[in-house]
Simulated scan of single mutants.
Amino acid sequence: MRAVYPGSFDPFTPGHFNLVERARVLFDEVVVLVAVNSAKHPGTDGEDRAAAVRAVLPVEWTSVTVAAWSGLTSTYCRRHDVAVIVRGLRNTTDLQAEYQLAAMNQSLGVPTVFLPAQPELAAVSSTAVRTLAPER
């Protein structure tokens, strides 16, 4: 079964890495789908973020690919024969927001699987990493 793990990944954090590592054990293939959404004001464009993700994933993870995508995740799933969306949850606030997205994607024919964050990584967010990082 193919799964997609979508996100802005601005930047790709240890929590994201851990989620991909766990998802690749559960699914035959995992696509890390880098969202191209200018409304989020990412620090770099989608292709650059996708390249950065590729650079940190181990080459032996041959069942994991990375793609930049502009559009609905459910559209990508239908066009590329992906059966499920994988999302990480750090806390109950994430659950509330992710549940609404999951309901929308389910109505569009693509179910979502939630994976809880590892406790030691739950406090790490891309926003926090960007805030603490030196200017790019």
Rank of each mutant, 00 (worst) to 15 (best):
A23Q: 15
K40I: 07
T44H: 12
A50I: 05
R2M: 08
V34P: 01
V82G: 01
R79V: 00
E60K: 07
S63D: 07
R2F: 03
H80I: 04
A83D: 13
E21T: 02
L101V: 12
V124R: 01
G7P: 14
A35W: 05
V110Y: 07
Y5T: 02
V20Q: 02
V124S: 04
E60Y: 09
A128V: 08
N91F: 13
V124N: 10
R49A: 09
V32E: 04
V110A: 09
L95I: 09
E135A: 15
T13R: 13
A103R: 14
R22F: 01
A123F: 13
P11H: 11
P134D: 11
A35I: 05
P14E: 10
P11R: 10
S74V: 14
G46V: 03
V110T: 12
V129E: 15
V86E: 09
D81L: 00
E98M: 09
V113N: 01
V124M: 10
N37C: 09
L115E: 03
L33D: 01
P116M: 07
R49S: 08
G109N: 12
V34K: 02
A50H: 05
W61F: 14
G15Q: 03
V4G: 00
V36A: 11
T13V: 05
Y76V: 01
H16N: 14
A103L: 13
L26H: 11
Q118L: 09
D28M: 02
K40V: 15
V34T: 05
S107K: 14
P119C: 06
V25A: 06
H16F: 14
V30H: 00
L72W: 07
A68I: 05
V4I: 12
V56P: 01
P116F: 08
L33Q: 04
A35L: 07
A39K: 14
L132H: 15
T62R: 01
V36T: 15
T65Q: 04
G7Y: 10
A97H: 15
K40D: 05
R90P: 09
V31L: 01
S38V: 14
W61Y: 10
V124T: 13
P42Q: 06
Q106L: 14
V84Q: 04
S126R: 07
G71C: 06
W61P: 01
G46I: 05
G109S: 11
V53G: 03
A67Y: 02
S63Q: 06
E120Y: 13
V113Y: 00
G71F: 03
A102K: 11
V20E: 00
A23M: 09
P42K: 10
A117L: 09
M104Q: 05
D45L: 15
I85L: 06
P42N: 10
K40F: 10
G46K: 06
F17Q: 10
E47T: 12
F9R: 13
L33C: 06
D94N: 11
F17T: 06
V53R: 03
F114G: 08
K40S: 08
P14H: 09
C77T: 00
V25I: 15
F17R: 15
F9Y: 12
R130T: 15
A52P: 04
G43D: 13
V113A: 08
A55T: 09
D48V: 15
V4T: 07
R54W: 00
L101P: 07
Y99N: 03
R79C: 02
V4D: 03
S107V: 13
K40C: 12
V82K: 01
A35V: 10
D94C: 12
T44D: 14
H16E: 12
S107D: 12
R54T: 03
N91G: 13
R87M: 07
